[in-house]
Design a binder for these strands. Structure first.
Length: 413
DNA sequence: TTTCCACAGGAAGGTACGGTCT
DNA sequence: AGACCGTACCTTCCTGTGGAAA
């Protein structure tokens, strides 16, 4: 057994807490314009008027959620000075698929633990009716923050965004003034809303631009100053993190995550300083973990599809077309306890892989072959095969991968 | 120019499941 | 107990697309 030895870090982190996702900075860098718009949009609240519905959009990690928390905290404090009661209900819609579920979450957030409502089984109108009763019993101004609304299914989007803003005019609410704050990182979401829903929900729109490299540098410097000891970071480290994150879409959360991972690596290695090399390696590690995590969440038929694609790739067919993947998939699925799905379904899987960034899907065609799509793994085939080890064991080792190291690892009787 | 081929993907509907309501 | 509800996951059917062959 390896010797267990904990070493106290004395040169890297002063206080790592400042790099955590949950840390809320007192001052937000580079979002002055957005904060001003936000403040203006909320002016009716302090004046005791009906609140605006506000729609926030911008890519992930550009400060939408952080700004919301900061602004609403401030709003609650200041309005209580004026004797106005403001309640904030916040729901993250990630993992929820319908308005129905969002409404139940809201109800359960209002209700005490021992009176929680079950998540299915009710009629839709019953759910909304209950929600309005609960809101009305709170009374005053209520701001409902719905974060990550883009993760809701398109078909189910309209329900809550239609009901909530209209509840008062339809006579469901007597005591409460409700404003909806919708937050989306999908810039096209607005277009998929029904026109009447769009016009009510988007009374005030605030767009959050992506951070550029220099803004990210500011954000990172703000955190790093408190998180790390003086001289713990090599000169170019922050600039590098900022540049990499700017290239990846200007996501501040990712930039901070990258810096944190680099710091962790340096600490593990008992280094005196975080170097550019740590950053590069941290970036690789994060990428690898993201792939692993998304593969592990796939359902079994999807994993078999990925197995089909990976085995083809390992064989040297780097961009197989959908039909080829399906042929291999069918062969693999036959050995598994799972009934193979139809080609149509598999096309959906392949489309999902692309949107999850596991693969890259491209149109191809011409010639006598007609039109078709080709699929290419976005990460190392070895990593993918390792991540679906259990599936390989279940379906059996396909001849094309019999030389792969994963196979040696499997306990094949 | 028309027809055919091979594929992509939208629409609608089926089924099983876990839940509530009466 | 049985009607009913929302949802996940799937199939079936069908239309659209663009180049090749007739």
């Amino acid at each position: 057994m390896a010797e267990i030895n904990f070493t106290v870090d004395t040169s890297i982190y002063d206080d790592r807490e400042y790099l955590r996702d949950s840390y809320q900075p007192e001052e937000i860098v580079g979002r002055d314009e957005e904060l001003e718009d936000y403040q203006n949009a909320l002016l009716p609240v302090v004046n005791g008027e009906e609140p605006n519905n506000i729609f926030l959009y911008g890519k992930t990690g550009v400060g939408k959620t952080v700004c919301t928390e900061l602004v609403l905290n401030e709003l609650q404090q200041q309005s209580s000075d004026y004797g106005i009661g403001v309640t904030v209900l916040s729901i993250n819609c990630d993992g929820l698929s319908s308005s129905y579920q969002v409404a139940i979450r809201l109800i359960n957030q209002i209700r005490p633990m021992d009176e929680q409502m079950a998540e299915t089984g009710h009629t839709a109108w019953k759910v909304y009716e209950t929600l309005f009763e609960e809101l009305d019993s709170i009374g005053g101004t209520i701001l409902v923050v719905l974060d990550e609304i883009d993760s809701l299914d398109d078909d189910h989007l309209d329900g809550i965004f239609y009901q909530l803003p209209r509840a008062r005019s339809n006579g469901y609410l007597d005591n409460a003034k409700v404003g909806v704050i919708g937050i989306s990182s999908d810039l096209t979401l607005k277009d998929s809303l029904a026109p009447d829903v769009r016009s009510t929900l988007c009374e005030k729109e605030i767009e959050f631009d992506s951070y550029d490299a220099s803004e990210l540098t500011e954000v990172l410097e703000q955190r790093a100053e408190k998180a790390f000891y003086d001289d713990a970071l090599q000169d170019r480290v922050i600039n590098l993190c900022a540049a990499l994150a700017a290239k990846d879409g200007g996501d501040a959360r990712r930039a901070i995550g990258l810096l944190r991972e680099a710091g962790d690596l340096a600490r593990q290695e008992n280094a005196d300083q975080v170097t550019e090399d740590h950053v590069e390696r941290a970036r690789e590690k994060i990428k690898k973990n993201m792939v692993l995590a998304s593969i592990q969440n796939l359902q079994e038929n999807e994993k078999i599809t990925l197995y089909a694609l990976a085995s083809l790739t390992y064989e040297g067919v780097e961009t197989p077309r959908s039909t080829k993947v399906y042929e291999r998939y069918e062969a693999l699925a036959e050995n598994s306890p799972h009934e193979p799905v139809t080609v149509r379904r598999l096309r959906d899987y392949l489309k999902d892989f692309d949107s999850m960034n596991l693969t890259e899907r491209n149109d191809a065609g011409g010639g006598t072959e007609g039109n078709y799509q080709i699929h290419e793994l976005n990460s190392d085939v070895d990593e993918v095969l390792s991540a679906i080890k259990d599936t390989i064991e279940m379906c059996g080792v396909h001849p094309s991968i019999k030389n792969h190291e994963v196979v040696d690892d499997l306990d094949l009787a």
